[in-house]
Every structure is written in C-alpha cells, then in structure tokens.
Design a protein around this nucleic acid. Sequence first.
DNA 1: CATGCAGCATTGTGATCACAAATGTTCGTC
DNA 2: GACGAACATTTGTGATCACAATGCTGCATG
Lengths: 205, 205
Amino acid sequence: MLAHDRVYRTLRVQIMHGELEPGISLTLRGIGKQFGVSMTPAREAVRRLVAEGALSLSASGRVSTPDLSNERIEELASVRALLEPELASRALPRAHIALIERLSAINSTVSEVVAKGDAVGYIRTNLEFHRTIYLRAQAPAMLAMAETVWLQLGPTMRKLYGRMQRTEAPFQHRAILTALRAGDEQGLKAAIRNDVAGGLRMLVG
Amino acid sequence: MLAHDRVYRTLRVQIMHGELEPGISLTLRGIGKQFGVSMTPAREAVRRLVAEGALSLSASGRVSTPDLSNERIEELASVRALLEPELASRALPRAHIALIERLSAINSTVSEVVAKGDAVGYIRTNLEFHRTIYLRAQAPAMLAMAETVWLQLGPTMRKLYGRMQRTEAPFQHRAILTALRAGDEQGLKAAIRNDVAGGLRMLVG
DNA sequence: CATGCAGCATTGTGATCACAAATGTTCGTC
DNA sequence: GACGAACATTTGTGATCACAATGCTGCATG
C-alpha cells in the first residue's frame, strides 16, 4: 500500500475516534519518524486531513488537532442533524432484521464501553452504530460528508466525553431501533435527530 | 503567497466555475509548468483538491476532473437541497434591503450571461447569487460544505449546461428574492429547494 | 521577580532526483 | 488491416536537501 495513504488512514481513524485531544501539535518530521517514512508522505497525509477539517493549520503552517469553538460545535451538530436523518431515511427500506440485530449487538457494546468509562471505545462504537445504518442508504457521497463531520468532531468529543450523558446514548439508540423495526420514517428521523443533536447540544453550555 | 496555495486556489476556481470539462487528465509536471513551480506544490494542491472531490484519482494515481454518474449527481443535488435551505433560513433574519438589492443586481447579470450562452459565466454568477445569501448565515462550516458540493459539480454543470433550462434560473431567483423581502422562511426554503434541485434533477434524465 | 532580546533549535516549503509502474507507440506477424 | 509484443515515454511516489521563517530558551537588564 502507498505510504502516504497508510499514514492518512491511520491518523484519520485516530482523530475520528478521539484518540487525540484538541490542540495537540504535530510535525511532519515527527509523523514521518512515527511511521518510518520521510516527510513527503507525511506532508501529503496532513494536507489531505487538513482539507477534511481533521487537522488545523496555524498561520505559519504549523499542524495541530482542531480546538473547536462552541459556535463551530453547534454548527457541526446542525449539519449532522441535517444529513443523518436523511441517510437513515434512505436506509429504512433496506433495513432488514439481520441489520437490526447487528445494530442491537453494537448497541450492547456501547453500553459496555460506557460502563467502563472508555471514551475512545464509546466514540468508536457509537459511530459504528450510525455508520452501519447509513451504509444501507446507498448514498456514498452523503455518507462521506457525514463522516467528515465526525472527523472534525473527534478530538472535541474526547475532550467533552466527561460532560456527555453517555448513559443516555444506548436509550436513544433503542428508539432508533424501534423506529427501524416499525418502518416509521418520521419516528426514525426524529430519533436520529435526538441522538446526534441531543448529545452535542448540551455539552457546549 | 505560498505557491501550493496559489495553485490550489486557481484550480479550485476553474473547476468550480466549470472551466474544465469532466474527464480531463492533469499531470503534476504539467500543472507545475503551467504555474512556474516544481512538482511539489502542484502535488499538494492536487492532493487537497482530491480530498474535496474536485479531482479524481485513478487506481494508478492519475489525476483527472471527475465524470460523475447520474446517481452521484442526484445525490449531490440532494445534499444541496438539504444544506442550502438551512443556510438561507439562517440568513433570512440578517437579510436587509441592501443585500436584496445586491442580489437583484447579480440576478440581472445571470440573465445577461444566459442570453450570451456563456456557460462559465452562468455557473459563476449563479453561485455568486447563492453565496451572497449564505454568507449572511454566519455558518462558515456549513457554507464550506455547500461549496464543496458546488466544486464537485463544476465540470458536470459545464457538460450539462446545454441541457439545463437556464432561462428559468432568474425566475427561481426572483422567487427567492420575494420570499426574502417578505421574511417568509418556509417560502424561502421552498424557493431555494426548487432552484438547486430543480435545475439538476431534470438534466440527469 | 518580571520583561525583553539575542541566539538557537525546530519546522514548513519548494526543488531536485532516482525509481518503478503505467501508458502510449511502433513495428512485426498473421 | 487487426492484433499483440517489445520498446520508449510519461507519470506518480518517496527521499533528500537548502533555505527562510517561526517559536523557544536562556540570559541579561530593569
């Protein structure tokens, strides 16, 4: 596999899952050393991640994980609340019983990692729950945009993990599952909105 | 200004405004020569544009303007129909008379370039009309996502320019202006939806 | 003890090069 | 004339280097 792609993918997952805190400084040489490559692929990976909002550039070109303002957090939450109900809506006709059972299993894992206080595990399994639904929507461009938003929120979610009422997520997810089982499109969209916006709305206050 | 940034900005505008057709091949050395720089800044600009969907990469790393499938076009139109009414809605309370007059002037330019059959001019002024509204929304992340969609659609809009009923755009825009003047949020959102989705829906058939 | 400045280390940028893979071309064969 | 193989060219990738600018450290000064 190409070096710059390997660096990109690894960093992307780390950022999206909240393995890095906001405001952490990265250097091209440091990334290169970490992955055993030269500056060149590190530079390309960083450039790509910056373009996706996963990393921030200072005026002088220094690289760091983004430290989002409350306004920006609310804005990204609004984008989630726009895109994700639509994705869920498109997935609904294709959501069979096997999918719902798989989602239920993922949701059990969410409860487990919440009980353990595992921030990264919580973010990862929570996103896995959502992605599993949206993959059924057959809308790759829309899903990519939603994932870009998750990516931008990764470090922030880690930072605010303590402030989130994480025990509520499995309940919200159960509402999603109920709507999926019932084929209730409006209920599904509302449940998704509650889950994605509700979780982030109150942690900026 | 930084070389790679200059290359990026220039190519980005060219792509967004439909100055390049879909499927055009680009090379790093060619871009470098065109801008009087080495491969390095050309590479970074291309990497960034690929990350934004403005350019496509073949399996072997060759760069070209994207040639979108009908499914992808409809999907991107749906994203526009989700994001842009929200942006307009947020701009509405801040839309004063001076803004509306400026929009009206832009719309006159749209009519002129349509009359001239100027595809690039049509795309540019049409996007300028929308951006002028959305800038008032004070939602930079959401606007950035909308612009990313425009960017991805740039070459395709050029290709399908002949099939678009471009003379209808100024009318749709007038409906937008009417709703803005009346402070009619629901009417505004509907007018935006008609404009962005309506224009693209019928050109994929 | 705080502050500002000089000197130093760190960092991103752009150019150049070697290399391998992919692409295009040419020529021969059927 | 069409097809295929060998060759030549083009192209992206990754490494390395020089350079300028930025950020940091420590020391002297008030």
